[in-house]
Simulated scan of single mutants.
Amino acid sequence: MLKGVHSMKEAEARAGEALRRLLEKIPILQIEDIEAAAVSGDWRPDLVARLLVDGREHLLICEYKSNGQPRYARSALLELRNYVAQRAPQATPVFIAPYLSPAVRQLCAEMGVGYLDLEGNARIAFGGVFIERMVADKPAAEQRELKSLFRPKSAQVLRAMLREPDRAWRVTELSEISGVSLGHVSNVRNGLIDREWASASDDGLVLSAPDALLDAWRDSYTPPAGERLRFYTPLHGSALEGAARNTLGTQDGQGHAAFASFSAAQWLAPYGRTGTHYFFADEDGLHKLQVALKLSTVSKGENVVVTVPKDLGLLADTLEPAPGAICTSPVQTYLDLSIAGERGAEAAEHLRQERLSWPK
């Protein structure tokens, strides 16, 4: 127990030091002291900063949390606001954490609470003082956490949930449908709840902010690992489309392939044609496409691009909007378009409006 208290005190001391460094830069401000509040049964702030501003005393009432995710931030902000309203109405509440995402910073602003994180993001306003600092980069730990939430195994869980965004899921159901272990599903569940992208109800886990989840996925998305092969086909127009649909539509357990990227978007939410045709396929599916579309390998001038992904879960997450027109799911197609340059970004937005709009 003592060890926990000791490390918390160290963390509070770091928070106090970060606050001191920030305030020292303000010429009209004099710091009288920054002290840790006494521990007691009632809720107490972690730090109280006594300042002189143009000779007038002002208090900053600060709460430090070692995790700044929305779920933890929201309760801290409410406690801070209530404490200030009841005990120190002239004081300014300030929330401090190792890192605060843009969503949490916005939450602080909406609730009228100042903030500071140990990465250097800050916004504190009172009297004649206004401090605002933004640091562009997400810290490495936050990037790692987000990346792990969107890695192939976790992504299979997210895809299942986004296919039925209104459904409440038991962890066991998600594990079965996504083919991912219970422990891994639990990690995804915790990550979603911490960020307030999902909430736990009596019936199970429900997505509460599918748009915010998809935004974050898009922002950290990188092309699927695997081989990207370039080919030339002599087929055009309806001959090409017919040959592709015949091949994709006869997937007899041996070999899987699907329209992807711009080619999937043509079926899901058409938006301007492109001269290149895109597919995802496994090794057997690739062979079938090579035969059916008379593909020859080229170093330039390709009009067919086939990705053979390491994560074959991508080929399990498909739709068939017309007979034989097997396409990567709207979510996967959206992600792939979002990194396909300017035209891709426009096609992605169009697809999102048509196929991925959820009631707010």
Rank of each mutant, 00 (worst) to 15 (best):
R14I: 01
R14G: 03
A15E: 05
E17T: 07
E17D: 14
L22M: 11
K25N: 11
P27G: 01
P27A: 01
A38D: 14
V48M: 09
R50H: 13
V53M: 12
R56A: 11
L59S: 02
C62A: 03
E63Q: 10
Y64A: 00
Y64T: 01
Q69W: 14
Y72T: 00
R87W: 06
A97F: 05
P102F: 02
C108Y: 05
G112T: 02
V113W: 11
A125R: 15
I131A: 11
A140W: 14
L158M: 12
L162V: 00
R167V: 00
V171D: 15
E173C: 00
S178F: 02
L182F: 06
L182V: 10
G183T: 04
E196W: 00
D202Y: 07
A209R: 12
P210G: 03
A225M: 14
G226H: 06
G226A: 06
R228K: 15
H236K: 12
S261T: 13
S263R: 07
A264K: 13
A281C: 12
V291D: 13
T297N: 13
V298T: 15
E302G: 05
E302M: 10
N303W: 01
N303S: 01
V304K: 10
T307H: 11
D311G: 07
L314N: 07
L315Q: 08
A316F: 07
T318I: 09
G324K: 03
C327H: 02
S329Q: 09
D336F: 02
E346D: 12
E346P: 04
L356D: 02
S357H: 13
W358Y: 12
W358A: 02
